[in-house]
Structures are given as structure tokens and as C-alpha cells.
């Protein structure tokens, strides 16, 4: 009986997951001393602004374009969504610079770095489809300017920036899903491999 339980995929998956990432490693009480620097704050600042983007996006999706164009609360939530995105990119770029100059791919952290890079690219696509889905003159201008460039790459055959319905679906379903999943993988990898130490750290964590 116990052998049967041992062979279950749920048992094997749980043992593998908790073996690689035990709770005290997933949610640690302390961090190494070198993490006490402002440069290590921008990763979590990016996640905090991402949460605000998702929450304000939920409200915009609930109420719809008429609401965010005409009502004062709609304007406020729309602005909250925009400014959260501005802070997200601001923080993400500083996080990127910090990690680039400390070569954060060291010590077997290649996948952590690469998931970050891909998340950055997905975020740009998400922001672009957001600008394309505003349903105002700005979005008309942006999409008519972008169509020739995108068509020239060949992507226009399946990604039509002048198709508002398609842009909105990419913006509120497909791309956020990918961004959330990639961010989750990125954070789990940071927990698995630990925060990258500075170059001059001799504690052994840099190996």
C-alpha cells in the first residue's frame, strides 16, 4: 500500500519540490549581509508595481472603456494603471542595470537572468498592446504608426495592430498570463539559487 502511495505522481512531485525548495528557503527569515543595499530593492519594487498594474487592470476590465473615458473615478483608475506601468518600467530598468553590472548570471544563475530578460521583452509587448487598446486618438495614432513596422517584420500576418479586439485580448489575457508565469518562475529561481553576491564577496556564495 505504502509503495503504491510512494509511486503516486503527487507524492513524487511534492517530495521533489520540497526537497529542492523547502519552506524555509522559499520564504527565508534573513538574507545575506550584502543584500542590505538599495540596489537590491528594485526587483521587489518592480513586483510591487506589477501587482498595482494587475489590480488596476482588473478594475478597468470590470468597468470598461466608456467608464475610464468619462467618469472621474475611471480617469483616476486609468491614471493609476498608467503610472504603475511607468514605475514598473522605471524599477525594472534600474533592476536590469544593477544585475547587468554585477553579472547576475554567475553561479549557475543563467536561467534566472534569461527569465528576467524574456519577462522584460514580454512586458514591452504588453505595454505596447495596452497603448493600442486605449480606444482614443492616441491609440489610433500609435497603431497606424506601428503597423508598417510590424508588417515589415512579417508578424503582421498573425498580429494585426489595427485589430482592436485582438490587441485587447493580447493585452488583458495572453501577455499578462505569460508575464505572471515568467515572474513566478524568475522569483522561484532567485529563491533556489539565492541572491547574487557582489564581486568582492568572499563568503563562498559567489561560486
Amino acid at each position: 500500500m505504502s509503495t503504491t502511495i510512494e509511486r503516486q505522481w503527487t507524492t513524487r512531485l511534492r517530495k521533489r519540490a520540497t526537497g529542492k525548495l523547502p519552506p524555509e528557503k522559499a520564504l527565508p527569515d534573513t538574507q545575506p549581509a550584502y543584500v542590505a543595499s538599495w540596489i537590491y530593492v528594485f526587483g521587489v519594487a518592480t513586483i510591487a508595481s506589477f501587482v498595482m498594474v494587475i489590480l488596476s487592470g482588473f478594475i478597468l476590465a470590470l468597468k470598461g472603456p466608456q467608464w475610464w473615458h468619462v467618469s472621474s473615478i475611471g480617469h483616476f483608475i486609468n491614471s493609476l494603471h498608467l503610472w504603475s506601468v511607468e514605475i514598473l518600467f522605471f524599477s525594472m530598468v534600474i533592476h536590469l542595470w544593477g544585475k547587468f553590472f554585477m553579472a547576475a548570471w554567475r553561479g549557475g544563475r543563467t536561467m534566472t537572468w534569461m527569465t528576467g530578460v524574456v519577462t522584460f521583452l514580454v512586458s514591452i509587448a504588453t505595454a505596447f498592446t495596452g497603448y493600442a487598446s486605449q480606444t482614443n486618438f492616441d491609440s489610433q495614432w500609435i497603431t497606424t504608426q506601428a503597423k508598417d513596422g510590424i508588417n515589415a517584420t512579417g508578424a503582421g500576418s498573425f498580429f494585426n495592430v489595427l485589430n482592436l479586439g485582438q490587441m485587447l485580448m493580447w493585452h488583458i489575457v495572453l501577455l499578462p498570463l505569460v508575464a505572471v508565469l515568467l515572474t513566478a518562475v524568475h522569483v522561484v529561481l532567485v529563491r533556489l539559487k539565492g541572491v547574487v553576491p557582489p564581486f568582492d564577496d568572499k563568503t563562498g556564495a559567489a561560486k
Binding site: A36, F42, V93
Partner: peptide, 17 residues
């Protein structure tokens, strides 16, 4: 502003360090 904040993040001491 991003460059300035980046430099500040490098050189401003972190509380409790």
C-alpha cells in the same frame, strides 16, 4: 532620472547596514 536613481541606489547607505 533613472540614471540618478541608479547612482543613488549604489551610493546612498542602506538603513541598518
Amino acid at each position: 532620472l533613472m540614471v540618478l536613481v541608479f547612482l543613488a541606489a549604489l551610493f546612498v547607505p542602506f538603513p541598518g547596514r
